[in-house]
Simulated scan of single mutants.
Amino acid sequence: MRNKVEPRPDLAFTWRAFHDLSGDRPVGMAVGRIPFTAIDRYATRFGIDARDDFERFMFLIRAMDVAFVEWAAKQAG
Score class of each variant (00 low, 15 high):
M1Q: 13
R2F: 13
R2A: 14
R2S: 13
N3L: 15
N3D: 15
K4P: 08
V5F: 10
V5M: 07
V5A: 09
P7T: 11
P7V: 12
R8C: 11
R8N: 14
P9T: 10
P9I: 11
P9C: 06
D10T: 02
D10Q: 06
L11K: 11
L11H: 12
A12C: 04
A12E: 13
A12Q: 10
F13Y: 09
T14Y: 11
T14R: 08
W15F: 15
W15R: 08
R16V: 11
R16Y: 07
F18Q: 03
F18S: 04
H19C: 08
D20G: 03
D20E: 10
L21Y: 04
S22W: 02
S22N: 13
G23H: 02
P26Q: 08
V27Y: 12
V27Q: 15
G28M: 03
M29Y: 10
A30W: 12
A30C: 13
V31T: 14
V31N: 02
V31P: 03
G32M: 08
G32W: 06
I34S: 04
P35L: 02
P35M: 01
F36K: 00
F36G: 00
T37C: 01
I39R: 06
I39S: 07
D40F: 01
Y42Q: 03
A43T: 01
T44G: 00
T44F: 00
R45C: 01
F46A: 06
G47P: 07
D49K: 07
D49P: 01
R51P: 06
R51A: 09
R51Q: 10
R51V: 10
R51D: 11
D52P: 03
D52S: 12
F54N: 02
F54I: 03
F54V: 01
E55T: 06
F59E: 05
F59H: 06
F59N: 05
F59V: 01
L60N: 12
I61V: 09
I61Q: 02
R62L: 02
A63T: 11
M64R: 14
M64K: 12
M64G: 14
D65R: 02
V66K: 07
A67M: 12
V69N: 04
W71T: 13
W71Y: 14
A72G: 06
A73H: 06
A73S: 13
K74A: 11
Q75V: 08
Q75C: 09
Q75Y: 02
Q75P: 00
A76K: 12
